[in-house]
């Protein structure tokens, strides 16, 4: 039985979607806010995430980004009242696989859910046995699956937070990622450190990957805002 994480804060809508999905033989875990969604996704395995955007605590776009840091393959279907082309583009850019606007057709929703799960299963089967994801920049490389990396001083093992931070910066290549954004996405619902902690992580990453950490080529600071990965 395929498992679906449904993130919807409107009680009635959540009830109706859950009921219909269950009647189609999906196992549904429904939550009503962004932080619970992140927590639940981390604790359980899902085949699909249906995600509202306007959510209490953490919005759906940030939830999606967080999900993508941990799982690049699980299909995410946005279900939102926001219906402009810009909203759809943002949703898809943040890692969504599909976007439906409210009010929607039940049949269409069920069909899209089915197709997304089938497609993801196929991709998963095809990718099994393939080599892990490696990202190269300059003389460095990072393996996001084995947490191994090669820096200026040779091979090293990165911590989970270091991997997540690098992944977030690389996914937003040439764009500034604010400290608040990093805190929300990398540290998510867990104990929030102060922004100084991020600076320390950045310093460590620069030591690994920059020839001159004081004049960084890849991990650059944007004063008063945050950091950006440049290549």
């Amino acid at each position: 039985m395929h498992r679906i994480l449904l993130v919807e804060d409107e009680e009635h809508l959540q009830h109706a979607i859950k009921l219909n999905l269950e009647m189609e033989n999906y196992a549904v875990n429904a939550v009503g806010d962004g932080n619970s969604a992140i927590k639940t996704f981390r604790e359980e395995k899902f085949d699909l995430v249906i995600l509202d955007i306007m959510l209490p605590e953490t919005d759906g776009l940030m939830v999606c980004e967080n999900i993508r840091l941990h799982d690049a393959n699980v299909p995410v279907l946005f279900l939102s009242a926001k219906n402009t082309p810009a909203d759809r583009i943002t949703g898809l850019k943040k890692g969504g696989d599909d976007y439906m606007t409210k009010p929607f057709d039940l049949e269409e929703l069920l069909l899209r859910v089915k197709k997304l799960i089938e497609k993801s299963q196929k991709i998963q089967l095809q990718s099994e046995g393939k080599t892990s994801t490696i990202y190269k920049f300059g003389e460095n490389w990072i393996n996001f699956e084995s947490y191994e990396a090669h820096g200026i001083n040779g091979k090293l093992d990165l911590t989970k937070k270091e991997i997540l931070l690098m992944k977030l910066l690389i996914e937003n290549k040439n764009q500034v990622v604010s400290r608040e954004h990093i805190l929300k996405v990398v540290w998510d619902y867990t104990v929030i450190p102060n922004t100084r902690t991020i600076d320390n992580f950045i310093l460590a990453l620069r030591k690994y990957f920059e020839v001159d950490p004081k004049e960084p080529r890849f991990i650059q600071s944007v004063r008063g805002v945050g950091y950006k990965f440049v290549e």
Binding site: H12, L13, A16, T101, K102, P103, F104, L106, E107
Partner: peptide
């Protein structure tokens, strides 16, 4: 849109 979506979904169900 939210109550509309909910009513529509209930009726379709």
């Amino acid at each position: 849109k939210t109550p509309l979506a909910s009513i529509k979904l209930y009726l379709e169900t």
